[in-house]
């Protein structure tokens, strides 16, 4: 349905440009604040474009970067390992489910998809992980729960089911077993959907703050997002105590540029994920589109 009238297209483009500005405005805003001067923020409030360009917030953060580097390392490790394991294991169950003739396929599907409808809930899961599996304060607590996501399995299965049958048939005539077909044909032919799912998992792992809040007491094992959450609260605490004991605002600001530091931390925590995302966006949309349609 392409309405070709020039005015119509122009109006549509303007609508989308405005909407996209709305989408990225908050990013630019925190970026702008993070490069502002603390005194300007105190006097004029937050502004999109800094009155005076200033990097002292970043200087402050990188004067003692041990926590951040550590949290980065932890997040990068569990995101990468979790993504790789998750994609491999999900494709292992998605491939059999994509076979039309497999006996018991229905039962396996119900076994898997039932977990989307019903679950034990937050507390039984918490007790299982902390008291029986003893995963708290390990990398595994970030990785193992949620390795198999039924929705992603469903997307992969749909994609596998649409691969041309002839390839498998001829490989079978040549005596190939299912493991061989899976590794040599199915996985390489499905790169686009595997890449899309992998990116999706990686970015959602990168956003994880919940696991740290619930299961991790060891400060050396918290994720970058949880560190960010804690900073938000602790900066508040520092400011509050400064005001309580009567230190004037200007003094507390020279001690710590609280407002700009907060926003600089937010930039640092979300930065890398956002930088690499546009390069992969193409695979992402294509893979998800192919997988989710025709179901």
């Amino acid at each position: 349905m392409k309405n070709n009238s020039k005015i119509f297209q122009l109006v549509l483009n303007i609508v989308f440009i405005l909407f996209c500005l709305v989408c990225i405005y908050p990013f630019l805003l925190i970026l702008g604040i993070s490069f502002s001067q603390e005194t300007d923020v105190a006097i004029y409030g937050y502004r999109l474009i800094p009155l005076k360009f200033d990097v002292s917030a970043y200087k402050y953060i990188f004067s003692n970067p041990v926590n951040i580097i550590n949290a980065y390392k932890v997040t990068a490790i569990f995101s990468t390992v979790g993504t790789v394991l998750s994609v491999i294991l999900m494709s292992m169950i998605a491939y059999p489910l994509s076979k039309k003739k497999l006996k018991g396929k229905g039962k396996i599907s119900i076994y898997l998809y039932f977990t989307m409808l019903f679950g034990g809930g937050m507390i039984p899961t918490y007790i299982l992980i902390t008291q029986y599996l003893k995963l708290q304060d390990t990398y595994w607590v970030y990785i193992l729960p949620g390795l198999i996501n039924p929705w992603n399995v469903f997307i992969m299965r749909t994609f596998f089911a649409r691969l041309p049958d002839e390839i498998f048939e001829s490989a079978k005539i040549d005596g190939a077993c299912e493991y061989y077909i899976f590794c040599r044909f199915v996985l390489p032919l499905s790169k686009s959907v595997l890449a899309a799912v992998a990116l999706f998992i990686f970015f959602s792992k990168w956003q994880d703050w919940y696991t740290s809040m619930l299961y991790v007491n060891d400060d050396n094992l918290i994720s970058i997002q949880y560190l960010l959450q804690r900073i938000m609260n602790s900066v508040d605490v520092i400011q509050q105590t400064n005001q309580d004991i009567g230190i004037s605002k200007s003094v507390s600001i020279t001690v710590m540029p609280a407002e700009t530091v907060k926003m600089a931390m937010a930039v640092i925590a979300s930065g890398p994920a956002l930088m690499i995302f546009p390069f992969f966006q193409k695979y992402f949309v294509r893979g998800l589109t192919i997988g989710s349609i025709k179901s």
């Binding site: 990168w206 703050w209 907060k262 995302f277 546009p278």
Partner: peptide
């Protein structure tokens, strides 16, 4: 332009609620 718009519109999906809370706070 469709691809550019899509990329920009999806971007917010890839930041955590923690970062969004900073934005809302701003």
């Amino acid at each position: 332009n469709i691809r550019i718009y899509q990329t920009l519109m999806i971007t917010p999906h890839f930041i955590s609620w923690v970062v969004v809370s900073y934005m809302v706070y701003a």
